[in-house]
Design a binder for these strands. Structure first.
Length: 859
RNA sequence: GCGAGCGUGGCGAAAUUGGUAGACGCAACAGACUUAAAAUCUGUCGACUUCGGUCUUGCGGGUUCGAUUCCCGCCGCUCGCACCA
């Protein structure tokens, strides 16, 4: 028997698919239902790694499976091609970012094609292509016209390593999401997109995604948007008010029920009043400066002590008329709410810590239902449910009731009103970088901000730029920014900021529906294909890309460019590919020398795993299992696996070992197991003998097993349980082996089912098997097999007999047997009888779960 | 601190309306084939056992005829947010 040679068969089948142009899909109506499956497109960093491979293979399984079910499947691929690494390469190696990017795309496209993915390459796009970003500039100006884009001076997050501004979503633990540098605050005039206009809709829309998006991602978005309902109101000052605050100071609270526990007013150090006082008094200025010192990292915030400054100002309590002091406090954020609060120490831990430190009053106004009015608070604020007391008109009310009453009273007085505020900030999209989409506006001294006329789009990046000094190459380019104003023709200045690359990826899925359209989006094509039915990618984009894309989809629909609300009807977040690490030296000493897996051999000594370097035999340390990364050298390249085991084995392994949402641990043994599967499956196809006679007994059993397998694999694929589906396929191979004597139609059907069921996972093997069976055409065009429910279940079932919940015997019964018959059989069972007698038990009750189990309750 | 998820053999894991715990794979061990090794094939593979059984899904309780699954309380790990009023 010939060994299966992936090196020969895989290129052969890929050539057949290419010859047939099998994966190009038309926008014409075919009468078939549509299905759009998309994986998050890659940044062209240089190589396709195992993480990419797992992601795209998952998408390919879905795409091939849906195709077999008769759908028109759109499965495109492109490149998220703008971004900092290209500029870093330019700085380090003197190559042009564009040249570097396009060379990487070339390499990676070749690597992707090796994977045998059912991709429609005719729709390929790269976001750095002027054809793409020019259309992006087009819709950007549409949003500008509608007021969804604006420019303002504000405090922004400045990444001192990448020399650019970052959006809030891109700052993690106070550090740049890409560079890891500590982010600084700077005042700059920047472009913003009004994502906050959509805050409510973005939260409310999450409900419709229930069941199709992971709960975790929906929750993260909800928390990120951070909607809270409360009261915004002014507190008047007693005596002289700060200039401009004669009406009082505006505060925000979610706990208006605790008004009577108010102890002081707190202002953020950046609040306008704080600044005014700081300008007048150097001691205040010094205090404010002190507040700014604390960093933004976790540890620093946890340790940061609450500090305050008594301004000497007094504010008037809106209900009691009493005067309360006004403090500047470091724990109050200027960016949230109004940057000012009223503090109720008894029911807020931060306020309490502060009040205890500065000896401010602590008055409890909410008590647990079971406590009485003597309830007080010591060092722990009471934030639980309860009843109001010490609160005049609110006494006896529950918290929610009291909130409503307090808001109503303030609204009646006209000093404030109920308000909903959000944690979400508008999206700052200006980047002071070269390799991005130019913001298509011109600054004219006379006319102000002037959009570039549409007939002058795209605004293309200049090619001749230098990276020898820090800063924005566009800004220092000799000629590019000097243009004449489109309105008055006077000399003017082109905007030199480029757009955040997350803008590029916020609409690419729509562009894929007609990537050559003369407008950003072809409405008919978008209507045909959108939303994306199944989107697959990493969970790290839960509040970045996935939130931005939902926003842009809504915005583009609102300006009439398409008509879609949610871009991704279904989302799946897949786990990473991880690998053991190996090193010489001590990790603790800071200088581990990482060793590549290809240079490592694992031995078993006294039952323990010991690693040795192949090259010199030295014993080395086995480190943690971590995400594959170049820095730790625990990388296995897809191309190497393909060369040694073939694509199909690699595809099978990344899906077989762990549930798709969990990390999968790459192992040499694991992929060898997958490779064995491919060989064994081929052996079954290859052993097929069309002339072998039918064999009634064996065939009947094989038919049953075949239908069971169809059922299990179909359900596994449907519910993203690829590992379970593959386990069933392994088991089916065992069945085929056990039924070696089967013949005739039953055998042929079983094998043709095997070919179709493995096709999403190991498509090349499937085609080879299909051809070997003498079947026409390609598996690719074959229908997904259907199972017969009656045949997918055994006609005889083994039912365990439990006594008191412990298994004591079993009876074999026909499927669907009457409970009475089952009970009789169980009681008549010799083993069961013997046990009952030996333990002197009498059966009191019998529970029969049809086709499952019998439980005898006895004593 | 707040929120969410997870915890099952030596390892990755199955067991989705409460019904035979450990499917399938890896590793390991034994055997066959081989001059030998690899590959391949066959078998064993949760723990203890007086071979009758007993115990076993992080720990402790509870509900139930029956719990990996539901409830309560701990312990541990992972992820997200983090002074958000």
């Amino acid at each position: 028997m010939a060994r299966y040679e992936p090196k020969i068969t895989e290129p052969r089948q890929q050539a057949r698919w290419a010859e047939a142009d099998a994966f190009s899909v038309s926008n014409e109506d075919t009468g078939r239902p549509k299905y759009y499956v998309l994986e998050m497109f890659p940044y062209p960093s240089g190589n396709i790694h195992m993480g990419h491979a797992r992601n795209y293979v998952m998408g390919d399984v879905i795409a091939r499976w849906k195709r077999a079910q008769g759908f028109d499947v759109l499965h495109p691929m492109g490149w998220d091609a703008f971004g900092m690494p290209a500029e870093n390469a330019a700085m380090e190696r003197g190559v042009h970012p564009g040249d570097w990017t396009y060379a990487n795309i070339e390499t990676m496209r070749g690597q992707l094609k090796l994977l045998g993915l059912s991709l429609d390459w005719s729709r390929e796009i790269a976001t750095c292509d002027p054809e793409y970003y020019g259309q992006q500039q087009g819709w950007f100006l549409e949003l500008y016209k509608r007021g969804l884009v604006y420019r303002k001076e504000g405090t922004v997050n400045w990444d001192p390593v990448d020399n650019t501004v970052l959006a809030n979503e891109q700052v993690i633990d106070g550090r740049g999401w890409r560079s890891g540098a500590l982010v600084e605050k700077r005042k700059l005039t920047q472009w913003f997109l009004r994502i906050t206009d959509y805050a409510d809709d973005l939260i409310d829309g999450l409900k419709d995604l229930e069941g199709r998006w992971p709960d975790k991602v929906r929750l993260m978005q909800e928390n990120w948007i951070g909607r809270s309902k409360g009261l915004q109101m002014k507190w008047a000052f007693a005596g002289t008010a700060p200039a401009g605050f004669e009406d009082g100071v505006e505060i925000y609270t979610t706990r208006p029920d605790t008004f009577y526990g108010a102890s002081f007013l707190g202002l953020a150090p950046d609040h306008a009043i704080s600044k005014q006082l700081a300008d007048a008094d150097p001691r205040v200025a010094e205090f404010v400066a002190e507040c700014r010192k604390g960093g933004a990292s976790q540890a620093e915030i946890e340790q940061a002590e609450k500090i305050g400054w008594d301004t000497g100002l007094k504010a008037i309590h809106p209900f009691t008329g009493e005067e309360v002091p006004v403090w500047i406090a470091n724990f109050i954020l200027s960016e949230y709410g109004t940057g000012a609060i009223f503090a109720c120490p008894a029911h807020d831990q931060r306020d309490l810590d502060f009040a205890r430190k500065y000896n401010l009053p602590v008055k409890a106004v909410v008590r647990p239902a079971e406590a009485d009015d003597s309830f007080t608070v010591d060092t722990e604020a009471y934030t639980g449910p309860g009843v109001l007391f010490n609160s005049d008109f609110m006494n006896g009310m529950e918290i929610e009731e009291a909130k409503a009453a307090a808001i109503a009273k303030i609204e009646a007085a006209g000093t404030g009103k109920g308000a909903t505020i959000y944690r979400l900030r508008d999206w700052g999209v200006s980047r002071q970088r070269y390799w991005g989409c130019p913001i298509p506006v011109i600054h004219c001294e006379d006319c102000g901000v002037v959009p570039v006329p549409s007939d002058q789009l795209p605004v293309e990046l200049p090619h001749d730029v230098t990276f020898d000094v820090p800063g924005n190459p566009l800004d220092r380019h000799a000629t590019w920014k000097h243009v004449n104003c489109p309105t008055c023709a006077k000399p003017a200045r082109r905007e030199t900021d480029t757009l955040d690359t997350f803008v590029d990826s916020s609409w690419y899925f729509a562009r894929f529906t007609d990537p050559k359209a003369a407008t950003p989006i072809n409405p008919a094509a978008a209507a045909k294909w959108l939303p994306v039915d199944q989107y697959i990618g990493g969970v790290e984009h839960a509040v970045l890309h996935l939130l931005y894309a939902r926003f842009i989809t809504r915005a583009l629909s609102d300006v009439g460019l398409m008509d879609v609300k949610e871009p991704f009807a279904g989302l799946f977040t897949q786990g990473m590919v991880v690998h053991e690490t190996y090193y010489e030296g001590h990790e603790d000493s800071g200088k581990p020398r990482w060793v590549e897996p290809s240079d490592v051999q694992i031995e078993h000594v006294d039952g323990k795993r010991v690693a040795r370097r192949l090259s010199n035999g030295a014993e080395i340390t086995i480190g943690d299992i971590e995400k594959m990364s170049k820095s730790k050298k625990n990388v296995v390249a897809p191309a190497d696996i393909i060369a040694t085991h073939g694509v199909d084995a690699g595809r099978l392994f990344v899906l077989s070992d762990s549930p798709p949402e969990r990390d999968v641990q790459w192992s040499a043994g694991g992929v060898e197991g997958a490779s064995r599967f491919v060989q064994r499956a081929w052996a079954e196809f290859d052993a097929f003998d069309a002339s072998a006679p039918a064999n009634a007994d064996v065939d009947a059993s094989l038919i049953r097993e075949t239908h069971k397998t169809i059922k299990a694999v179909s359900e596994g694929v449907e519910h993203f349980r690829f590992n379970s589906a593959i386990a069933k396929l392994y088991a089916f191979l065992g069945v085929l082996k056990d039924h070696a004597k089967a013949g005739g139609e039953a055998k042929k059907t079983a094998l043709s089912v095997l070919a179709r069921l493995v096709a999403p996972f190991t498509p090349h093997l499937a085609e080879e098997g299909w051809t070997r069976l003498g079947l026409d055409g390609m598996v690719l065009d074959a229908e997904w097999p259907q199972f017969d429910a009656a045949l997918a279940a055994d006609d005889q079932v083994i039912m365990p007999v439990q006594i008191g919940g412990k298994r004591r015997g079993e009876v074999q019964m026909p499927r669907g047997a009457d409970n009475a018959d089952v009970e009789a059989a169980a009681l008549a069972n010799a083993t069961v009888k013997a046990y009952l007698e030996a333990n002197n038990l009498t059966v009191r009750k019998v529970i029969v779960v049809p086709d499952r189990i019998v439980n005898l309750v006895a004593n």
